[in-house]
């Protein structure tokens, strides 16, 4: 028996909106730790890892570890039917091939349930090794989204270079080139508006903008984004989910042939 009650149902709506275009089908794993997902995009270039810790749910019952295969497009369609203020409860019986999403309005005057068929998904689970990153960049998530969007109108790839002076995002395309430099800026009114570069070891990596733009669909989940970079390994783009966990996107770099 599985029963997960999430008072801030909008979080789950936002999570689905942020990953449904990157990943088609995925297994959601439920254990005593929480509700999690790990999945690659169809071209196996990016990986998404989601964790919603059990403590973040108002009620969390998971009698045994289970994995539920879902089509994320269909799940997003169902969650779109929940109001932004609704409480969302996920329910599944042992051995059942369906999951039920129950939506309760805050005043309890409307209760809806949507049942969705589960799928058998043969997914490969990857172990993500601990890495020491050369540079960790924390910046407003909206600013990062803006940079990715702007640069993708000029070129297809971005070179992210970190130096002691700051971080530079560069692209080039048929019509010209573009560079955006962000300097460390901690003298702001609100901490979420700061740009912080931790451990600024020089590092320069190239990534496909298409994927970074897709990751920025998670912007509504968090005011800040943390970007961890190290030479020749995937970048991690992390959006923390308040009080509950995180959504992390890993993207393999492009290498000069």
């Amino acid at each position: 028996m599985l029963e997960l009650r999430l008072v801030q149902g909008s979080l789950l709506k936002k999570v689905l909106e942020s990953i449904k275009d990157l990943v088609n089908d995925a297994n959601f794993d439920c254990s005593a730790t929480g509700f999690s997902l790990q999945a690659m995009d169809s071209s196996h270039v990016a990986l998404v890892a989601l964790l919603l810790r059990s403590e973040g749910f108002e009620h969390y019952r998971c009698d045994r570890n289970i994995s539920m295969g879902m089509n994320l497009g269909n799940m997003a369609k169902m969650l779109k039917c929940a109001g932004n203020d609704d409480i969302i409860t996920l329910k599944a019986d042992d051995g059942s091939d369906t999951v039920t999403f129950m939506f309760e309005s805050p005043t309890q005057d409307k209760i809806a349930d949507f049942e969705m068929r589960l799928m058998d998904i043969d997914s490969e689970h990857l172990g993500i090794p601990e890495a020491e990153y050369h540079a960790i960049l924390i910046m407003p998530s909206a600013e990062f989204a803006r940079i990715c969007k702007d640069l993708s109108s000029i070129g297809d790839t971005v070179v992210i270079s970190v130096t002691k002076e700051g971080v530079k995002f560069s692209t080039r395309g048929d019509i010209g080139t573009a560079n955006v430099v962000c300097r460390q800026n901690t003298t702001v009114d609100k901490p979420e508006e700061a740009t912080v570069i931790e451990m600024p070891e020089p590092v320069s990596l190239t990534f496909a903008l298409r994927y970074l733009n897709s990751f920025t669909k998670a912007t509504p989940l968090s005011n800040t984004v943390t970007i961890s970079l190290s030479s020749e390994i995937p970048v991690v783009v992390e959006y923390k989910i308040a009080e509950m966990g995180y959504i992390r996107f890993y993207l393999a770099p492009k290498i000069e042939e």
Binding site: E124, L126, G127, I128, Y250, A252, K254, I255, E257
Partner: peptide, 14 residues
């Protein structure tokens, strides 16, 4: 030209 790496080249399967 740049070659796009796959994510599984960096992470351990299983």
């Amino acid at each position: 030209p740049c070659l796009q790496r796959k994510i599984a080249e960096y992470f351990i399967s299983g």
